[in-house]
């Protein structure tokens, strides 16, 4: 219900850290939603960032291999760590070069995270790449010490993989849109182990519950309510519409609605006739 007032994407500019939007643009299909696709977390080396071109449509956006770069993940050593009142600044040296980073510390949890980060330590950073007065720097939202050093090898192999993926696709003349490129990269098994690029989609949600022995009709009702277009409707779906669409008598629909409501999977909205899925709503 509150989703329409609070745009998580705009507020946090993405990453895998916020629940995905499902309700924001009900008319736009998932695959073509630009806003979401540009949120991917791209593994990059400092060298690649230093050579990134500035994209024309938006000053703060960079392009690497033709793909727009916002959020990046990098692995390297922490140097020149300086604690300030509101943030901690440091230089990340990943062996290919150095980039200035800062991590804002607002909450106690941020302070705690950064206390463990010492000079000379290998860390993995998730952050937002910014350009300011011609200088590029990283605003980190997560800095985590590397404990298994195979992660370093893995990170650079990922950089190579993503570079190859983005350049090879283009060479094939497919001229993929940025969104498709990013989306497919994120879905490869190699990336899956990483730190949650995107939160689940409603489809995953229904899959999850499909195994819980919901009755056929319950599942159909739930599936219908979880269609992106229906998730986007503020009032939810009228029970008559459910009946007509699923060609199921109203009493059976109501039975399912009660069962799903008890399970906490759906809720009534403006009155007892309109229902919405709780998944990603």
């Amino acid at each position: 219900m509150f989703a329409s007032q609070f745009d998580g994407n705009a507020a946090f500019s993405g990453g895998g850290f916020m629940p995905s939007q499902a309700t924001q643009n009900p008319d736009v299909g998932f695959s073509s939603n630009k806003n979401r696709d540009s949120q991917g977390l791209l593994p990059l080396t400092v060298k690649q960032i230093s050579e990134a071109s500035v994209s024309n449509d938006d000053k703060s956006n960079f392009l690497v291999d033709g793909v727009s770069v916002n959020n990046v993940t990098m692995v390297g050593m922490v140097l020149n760590r300086v604690e300030r009142v509101t943030d901690i600044a440091f230089t990340l040296d990943d062996g290919t070069g150095r980039i200035e980073c800062n991590r804002w510390v607002n909450e106690a949890v941020d302070t705690k995270e950064m206390e463990g980060i010492q000079e000379g330590m290998y860390v993995q950073i998730h952050g937002h790449l910014k350009g300011f007065q011609g200088k590029r720097h990283l605003v980190a939202f997560a800095v985590r010490p590397v404990t298994d050093f195979n992660e370093i090898t893995c990170h650079f192999l990922e950089c190579i993989y993503v570079h190859l993926y983005n350049t090879k696709l283009k060479a094939q003349g497919g001229a993929p849109t940025q969104g498709q490129t990013m989306g497919s990269v994120m879905n490869t098994p190699m990336q899956k182990e990483s730190k949650g690029y995107q939160a689940g989609t409603p489809n995953q949600f229904s899959g999850q519950f499909g195994m819980d022995g919901l009755k056929d009709i319950d599942q159909k009702v739930l599936d219908y309510l979880q269609q992106p277009s229906n998730l986007g409707r503020e009032k939810g779906v009228h029970r008559d519409e459910l009946g007509q669409h699923l060609k199921i008598p109203l009493d059976k629909i109501m039975e399912s609605i009660r069962a799903l409501e008890e399970e906490g999977l759906i809720y009534s909205t403006i009155d007892e006739c309109h229902y919405k899925s709780t998944g990603n709503g």
Partner: peptide, 23 residues
């Protein structure tokens, strides 16, 4: 514990086909 064979491959790749990402 460290996977030296992966590291070895990375060295080869970083000095070969994908040198531009590193140097």
């Amino acid at each position: 514990i460290f996977d030296t064979s992966s590291f070895n491959r990375l060295c080869e790749l970083a000095n070969g086909e994908f040198k531009s990402l590193f140097l």
